[in-house]
């Protein structure tokens, strides 16, 4: 697979041309890699080290580099005793799990129906489901902010309309009170589900695509064998399809985890930078932003980064230990 630059026996007097040619081959990979390595050192490695240094100092960026004072472990002490950091971690995990689970409950059966029963227009349907995924989170969060509006928003208008329908209204929507519309983005009880709801809309299509391709990898022989054994409808889904997409589920859950930890734009746009009422929608990324840019405390923010780094490292380690082998086992 790789280019061999040495011949087995080196001739005693190798011409300089040969040596030059060999040297070119030896140096070429470094040349090709240099932009990537330089960018990586400047924007990934150096910042991490700088942040480690920073985390032992007190510093307001607006006062210039000279205004840095050494404070030892104080920032770390502050970081691990800060209540808001745990609250934002809790919020992040809560919303991540809520949207992640809901997404899977929708995407797994929807993808199965698409893969097994829908032959025509399959691409059209997946195309529609996938569409929110390609668009800017900020842009769609703006649209959702409008739709979640208290008095004029689409969701409350829809609920009110259903409430007034003859039979359905009194059977299913009796709980709607048009006088007191739901305050989707203000009421603490609704903030997290509202944000998670938008995420489900934005990302379930991605999972549908993954799971459809997962189901399509199941060989028709296995399905035929199962049919001979008397497996039908739901049994085929439960005993054949679901176990065989396990690696895909592992992949999607991993992406869910990463996505949840990075959740920023949705709550930031829909709730404002402090995360709404009682910080109910404050995520860990938003909190970093708040500490660093709004409160201008880069030292504490850096210490928090390192604390989180350790925390996430441990969580990821446990996750891969528990599910990694199982999830990837069959692939």
């Amino acid at each position: 697979m790789t280019v061999s630059t040495h011949s087995n026996e080196m001739p005693a007097e190798q011409s300089w041309q040969n040596r030059w040619a060999n040297m070119k081959v030896t140096l070429a990979p470094y040349g090709f890699l240099s932009p990537a390595i330089i960018l990586f050192l400047i924007f990934n490695i150096f910042p991490l080290l700088f942040a480690a240094f920073m985390s032992f100092h007190l510093w307001k960026p607006s006062e210039g580099l000279g205004a840095m004072t050494f404070v030892g472990w104080e920032n770390y002490y502050y970081a691990i005793t800060d209540e808001l950091i745990y609250k934002s971690l809790y919020n992040t995990i809560f919303m991540g799990v809520l949207s992640g689970v809901t997404m899977h409950l929708i995407a797994i059966p929807v993808a199965y129906i698409l893969a097994t029963y829908i032959k025509r227009f399959r691409n059209l349907f997946t195309g529609a489901f996938f569409m929110p995924f390609v668009t800017s989170t900020v842009a769609v969060a703006l649209v959702f902010t409008n739709m979640y509006g208290e008095n004029f928003g689409l969701f409350n208008s829809l609920l009110a309309t259903f409430h007034e329908m003859p039979v359905i209204g009194s059977l299913l929507f009796f709980w709607v009170d048009p006088e007191n519309p739901i305050r989707w983005l203000i009421d603490v009880a609704f903030i997290k589900p509202s944000i998670a709801g938008m995420q489900v809309w934005k990302f379930f299509g991605f999972q549908v695509v993954i799971y459809v391709s997962g189901y399509l990898t199941i060989s028709s022989e296995i399905i035929e064998a199962a049919e001979v054994d008397g497996c039908t409808g739901f049994g085929k889904f439960w005993h054949i399809a679901l176990p065989s997409i396990r690696p895909f589920i592992f992949f999607c859950i991993t992406l869910n985890l990463i996505g949840a930890l990075n959740m920023f734009e949705e709550p930031f746009v829909m709730l404002g930078k402090t995360g709404g009422t009682d910080s109910a929608g404050l995520t860990i990324s938003m909190y970093m932003y708040l500490v660093g840019w709004v409160w201008e405390d880069f030292g504490t923010a850096s210490a928090m980064s390192w604390f989180l780094f350790a925390f996430i490292g441990v969580v990821t380690g446990i996750y891969f230990l528990l599910f990694g082998k199982k999830g990837l086992g069959d692939s």
């Binding site: 990934n44 910042p47 960026p61 860990i284 880069f298 850096s302 980064s305 989180l308």
Partner: peptide, 9 residues
């Protein structure tokens, strides 16, 4: 998320 602060620095 974690590289946000170092990146800004």
């Amino acid at each position: 998320v974690l590289s946000l602060i170092p990146f800004a620095l």
